[in-house]
């Protein structure tokens, strides 16, 4: 193997992500059940958040996003705000879907 090895923190991070991938959906299903619409919501946004955080970490650490450069602080806030927007939007959508009466009782 080539001399320079990867940072142990990197391998620790990988193990952490794998652990989340395995345990998170199982915990979710045991708490809410597979049929619950919130299970799908938290599955998507839970794994989505992990992906998003890794993305933010990578671009900040590499300097590709530098909040002190030009207007990049604004872009950083927009990225974070966008995630909050979509997760809130989908959450409100589920609440509206579940709580407004259905007029076709008995018809699926």
């Amino acid at each position: 193997m080539y001399k320079k090895k990867l940072n142990p923190k990197f391998w620790g991070g990988c193990a952490g992500v794998l652990a989340i991938c395995y345990f998170y959906p199982r915990i979710l299903v045991s708490l809410l059940g597979e049929e619950n619409p919130w299970t799908s919501y938290f599955y998507m946004y839970g794994f989505g958040l992990v992906t998003f955080i890794i993305g933010m970490f990578v671009i900040l650490k590499s300097g590709a996003l530098n909040p002190r450069r030009g207007n990049e602080r604004m872009w950083m806030h927009l990225l974070l705000g966008g995630f909050v927007f979509f997760s809130t939007f989908h959450g409100i959508w589920i609440i509206l879907a579940l709580n407004i009466p259905y007029l076709g009782e008995g018809i699926q």
Binding site: P25, T39, Y41, Y43, H90, I94, L96, A97, Y102
Partner: peptide, 14 residues
């Protein structure tokens, strides 16, 4: 109102 709840949801079954 006439849209079934399953069809209003933004996510499908897992």
């Amino acid at each position: 109102g006439y849209l079934p709840v399953s069809h209003r949801l933004p996510f499908v079954h897992l």
